[in-house]
């Protein structure tokens, strides 16, 4: 029997499956969002560590006093990073960090069977017990809190709220 193995795996198919959860439940959207936010926040984390390190001396720390270096470097950093596009990017990062955190708590609980229903006899009228209201409520809470974090980030970067 000749079978076509290529149907099983190709990169366009893998990426589409991973990144486009259309037609599936919120759990599948959570999987995609958790993965995308994780990768983006990791990139931000690496850049953050590098940039803060550069700010306080960078590779010149051995022969330039860090404080003087930072004083001289501050204007450069501000010119480089303080622009509307970058600030808007940081707002998105704010959303992603909050979402990944709260949804991460939800996934940790679910991975230990907490927040899910108990196994029982099949009831054809009921949705799967793993799609429990509590677990889904935490997902929506992660969206809500992430949006709140984004609003706070808008204020932190653009100063729009009144104190």
């Amino acid at each position: 029997m000749r079978t076509v193995r290529s149907q099983a795996r190709s990169y366009p198919l893998v990426l589409k499956t991973m990144l486009v959860p259309v037609g599936y439940t919120v759990e599948r959207w959570s999987y995609t969002l958790q993965r995308v936010t994780g990768v983006v926040v990791t990139l931000y984390f690496v850049l953050h560590v590098v940039e803060t390190g550069n700010f306080i001396g960078g590779p010149n720390v051995w022969y330039v006093p860090p404080k003087d270096f930072a004083a001289a470097y501050y204007q450069h950093v501000k010119e480089l990073l303080h622009n509307p596009v970058f600030d808007a990017g940081l707002v998105v990062i704010g959303w992603m960090v909050a979402f990944h955190t709260i949804n991460g708590i939800r996934l940790t609980l679910a991975h230990f069977g907490i927040t899910l229903g108990k196994p029982a006899r099949v009831d054809p009228e009921s949705p799967p017990r793993s799609f429990s209201n509590l677990q889904r409520a935490i997902f929506w809470a992660s969206i809500a809190l992430a949006t709140f974090a984004a609003v706070y980030s808008v204020d932190a970067l653009f100063g729009v709220l009144s104190g």
């Binding site: 004083a71 501050y74 501000k78 303080h82 970067l157 653009f158 100063g159 009144s162 104190g163």
Partner: peptide, 20 residues
């Protein structure tokens, strides 16, 4: 972040450059 008052950006407070 939460050291700054609402309505002020991190560029004005947290990252403020003042007397080194």
């Amino acid at each position: 972040f939460f050291t700054k008052p609402l309505g002020e950006t991190i560029w004005e407070t947290t990252m403020l450059f003042e007397g080194h």
